[in-house]
């Protein structure tokens, strides 16, 4: 620009013929974009759509905005913005694709690994919102038939059972108690008509116990002694620390334990 100072730089005047031609090309481009989407080329549709839009954008920038006739400085300024947009785009997308799947849960985004990690938590006897949510899912799949949607012991199959399934919303009547560790114990051993869920992974049983305890009139907490009783809370604890076992190995262990 400096060399233009002082002398009269002639401003470029865009000829009306070019103005009208660009306008016509933009309208044709729009018609092509609309027309192309009515053919189903699959993923190619997208490429065509973006390609036409980019050609239209280039026409606007080159002629209407006159970047073709402008200084190199201004070209660099404007086109630099797209370099930064590209960096923004590429870094964000590579993060998205290499981060691992993300789960959309009830208006919240959870990295699947994170949700998985919570479920496989090394100390699942400590309640977390993730465990309670996991327990709720498991409950809906495995418990509602007898215990009912709201945990009142009034599921569709409850009528056929005697004694009736536990009403989780009531304070009284719990055979083994209603602390999470005690619910965990009942799940592991089974109770009355309820079979043992020992073949389910321990973190799943803990998740269920934490969810069920939220149904009650108050949420009770386990003391370290309570946890010890079910073998949780220490490194070798069979209750919680164990990882999911292959089903055949689990059966073998159970039969050897009698």
């Amino acid at each position: 620009m400096a060399e233009k100072h002082g002398n009269h730089h002639k401003h470029h005047i865009l000829a009306p013929k070019i103005i009208w031609t660009v306008w016509a090309l933009l309208l044709i481009g729009t018609a092509l974009t609309v027309g192309a989407t009515h053919f189903h080329f699959g993923a190619v549709n997208y490429v065509i759509g973006i390609l036409i839009a980019t050609i239209k954008a280039a026409l606007v920038v080159t002629f209407f905005m006159g970047l073709k006739y402008d200084s190199n400085e201004n070209r660099v300024i404007f086109l630099t913005s797209f370099v930064f947009v590209a960096i923004f785009f590429v870094l964000t997308m590579s993060d998205l694709f290499f981060r691992g799947p993300v789960e959309f849960d009830n208006g919240r985004f959870l990295a699947a690994q994170e949700a998985h990690a919570a479920a496989q938590s090394s100390d699942p006897w400590i309640s977390t919102p993730e465990l309670v949510a996991k327990g709720k899912e498991l409950y809906a799949a495995q418990c509602v038939v007898c215990h009912g949607v709201n945990g009142k012991g009034d599921g569709p199959a409850a009528g056929a059972l005697n004694p009736k399934p536990r009403n989780f919303t009531a304070q009284a009547g719990w055979v083994n108690g209603r602390k999470p560790s005690e619910i965990f114990g009942s799940l592991t051993k089974g109770l009355n008509a309820m079979p043992s869920f020992a073949t389910s992974p321990a973190p799943d049983r803990w998740a269920l116990a934490h969810y069920v305890s939220t149904l009650g009139p108050s949420v009770l907490k386990d003391s370290p002694e309570d946890l010890k009783k079910v073998g949780a809370g220490n490194a070798s604890g069979g209750g919680g620390g164990e990882k999911t076992l292959p089903i055949d190995l689990a059966i073998e262990i159970m039969s050897s334990e009698g």
Binding site: T30, T33, T37, G49, I52, A53, A57
Partner: peptide
Amino acid sequence: WIYLFPILYLL
């Protein structure tokens, strides 16, 4: 708008 139209309405 040249970009908004296809990405929002068409594609």
